[in-house]
């Protein structure tokens, strides 16, 4: 029983991290209609920035995380300007290939700049809390709480600010008439900035538990894709739901089925879903 609760909490932790990454991915997809292959690598860079802020400059964890968010926002905007904006009118497979190029570039740059070693963001909240017989590190609770706070913040941003609701309108209705008078460029840049901040927050939160290394973006981006396919590409609630479904499935699957094949689970779910419903679980529109 305790094991079940323990693994559920782990699943929620995992789901929280996935959620922050998948939310950004789905936002970008909604606005630009391009699966941003490099998104996992923004997450990776975010992890490194926080790590170096703490270890090189001795900054506080939270300050480092904020700086990392700012740096990533800039990087996200650069990515939009240099890669996706110029490709706006290209065929969709070319956009995808450009995103792959950006991903390879970021990963290789990280290897060149920072080496291939595994690093860990210093843990400052590693006390163990015992709750109802379940032992948890504080960091796990911080991850879950942090993700919830950011999700609420995102919700408020989208529902209660002009620009936020513009993003939502654009995501839901790309070529509708309601878009008259919207500065598409500004919205695109802002979306990339917000998505990158979420990715960097995910990495800062996860860094003390999981590790920081150049390849860390590859696996999470694939999982984020699985999530947004489950949740419907471009859908925000779908991404949240999909993240926790995947986090819990993986965590419980690893315990009760096979830890060796834990990473296969995500992809198997996707293959299963698309085999049954080729247009995704929550597809919109006719046909």
């Amino acid at each position: 029983m305790n094991l079940l609760i323990q693994q559920t909490v782990n699943g929620l932790t995992l789901g929280s991290i996935y959620c922050l990454v998948a939310l950004g991915l789905t936002l970008i997809y909604g606005i630009m209609e391009v699966p941003n292959f490099a998104h996992g690598h923004l997450y990776m860079v975010g992890g490194y920035v926080t790590f170096f802020m703490m270890t090189l400059y001795g900054l506080n964890y939270w300050v480092s995380a904020i700086i990392s968010g700012i740096v990533l926002a800039v990087l996200g905007i650069l990515l939009e300007r240099l890669v996706f904006n110029p490709m706006r009118n290209s065929p969709s497979s070319n956009k995808f290939i450009a995103a792959v190029g950006a991903m390879l570039f970021l990963e290789a740059s990280a290897r060149v700049l920072w080496g291939s070693d595994f690093r860990s963001i210093p843990a400052i909240y590693d006390n163990v809390v015992v709750m109802g017989g379940v032992r948890l590190t504080e960091q796990r609770l911080i991850i879950i709480a942090g993700a919830v706070i950011l999700m609420v913040a995102l919700y408020v941003f989208i529902k209660h600010t002009m620009i936020g609701s513009t993003i939502e309108a654009m995501a839901q209705n790309r070529d509708g008439a309601s878009l008259v008078g919207i500065d598409v460029n500004r919205v695109a840049m802002l979306t990339f900035a917000v998505a990158s901040i979420l990715a960097s927050a995910a990495a800062s939160l996860a860094g003390p538990i999981f590790l920081v290394y150049p390849g860390m973006g590859s696996l999470i981006i694939m999982k984020a894709f699985v999530i947004i396919v489950i949740g419907g590409m471009g859908s925000i609630p779908g991404a949240v739901l999909g993240s926790f479904i995947l986090g819990l499935t993986e965590s419980l699957g690893a315990t009760y089925l096979s830890s060796n094949y834990k990473d296969v689970v995500a992809f198997a779910i996707l293959v299963l879903i698309l085999s049954i419903k080729p247009s995704g679980l929550f597809a919109k529109g006719a046909r």
């Binding site: 969709s92 694939m222 894709f225 990473d263 296969v264």
Partner: peptide
């Protein structure tokens, strides 16, 4: 299976097949 999906789903689907083969 994959050709029943379209556009980006096809790309992501085949990518996942690649990952599955790799992981197996």
């Amino acid at each position: 299976i994959s050709f029943r999906t379209r556009g980006h789903y096809f790309v992501i689907f085949t990518l996942c097949i690649g990952v599955i083969i790799n992981l197996v």
